[in-house]
Computed example of a mutant assay.
Amino acid sequence: MTEEAHAQLGPDEQAPDGRRLRWTEHRVRRRAAFVVAGTLAIDTYGPEASAEQIAETAGVSRTVLYRYFRDREDLRQAIADEAVAAVVASVLPKLQLSADSTPRQAIRSVIEVVVGWLAEHPNMYHFLRDRRSGSALEAVESTVADQVAALLKMFLMFFGIDAAKAEPGAYGIVGFVESSGSWWLARRSMSREKLTEIICDGVWYLLDGTARAANVHVGYDDPLPLEAFGQQGTDQEDS
């Protein structure tokens, strides 16, 4: 039996012995594989990659492809969700700091990942940006911004700076990075490395300016005072 014919059958017809769960798991795996094929097709053919091109990339017919999605919008939203998850998964680990972390290292590790993703997946970026009404790109920005805000709050509180500034500041930084990346994709007037350097410096100037306004001085290459902050948090809990 062909896959197209198999996909048209209900789980009871395909598994008369009652293996419904096995069939459901099969459909989940196949759908996930088609979503990955969709991301590859968009990278290859552009943001408007057709269902036929996605099906060709997946090695199936268009009819089989749509057995696993309600319609075109369901397919494209699933692709957007997959791309968002991939970006977030690559960025969040870089926001984990160690006792030896410096501002330069912390900022650069994140920016390198973001700029690298933009350079390697420009079509997917435009696909997500075109779907702003579906909250695809906002999901990346808000998730990363929330994590950045948590870090900023930690350090601002340690330095005695109003923590209420952390959240708008974090979203401002994320917006700055995304806008700079979008500008670069449209022009490619400098190297990826140069863009990374410029964005890193810009982020640092924003952070350093906020700290200096509160009469706090942190070196770009000085280890961040993680242990001191942890001790302060312990003291506050004990009081």
Rank of each mutant, 00 (worst) to 15 (best):
D130C: 07
L118H: 09
G134I: 01
S133A: 13
P122W: 07
G134Q: 14
L137R: 12
H121I: 10
G175Y: 01
T210W: 06
A136C: 08
L156C: 07
D162S: 12
R129K: 13
E141N: 09
G181C: 07
S180C: 05
S182L: 02
D201C: 01
P168S: 01
A170F: 05
G172E: 06
W117H: 14
M154A: 15
P168M: 03
G202Y: 05
K153Q: 05
K153M: 03
S142R: 11
A119E: 12
G181P: 04
L185M: 14
R188Y: 06
G134M: 10
A164M: 09
L151E: 07
Y125R: 13
A166F: 06
A150I: 11
P168Q: 05
H121G: 08
S133D: 10
R188A: 09
V174K: 01
G160F: 04
R188H: 14
V177P: 02
M124N: 13
Y171C: 00
A150F: 06
V110L: 14
P122F: 03
L152G: 01
R187P: 00
F176P: 00
E167W: 05
V177Y: 04
I173E: 10
F159K: 12
D162I: 08
E178W: 12
G172I: 02
L137P: 02
V174D: 03
H126E: 12
W204I: 08
T210N: 06
A150L: 11
Y125L: 14
A119V: 12
V203Y: 05
T196A: 11
V113A: 15
R192C: 09
A106Y: 15
S133M: 11
V144K: 03
R129P: 00
R192T: 14
S109F: 11
S191H: 07
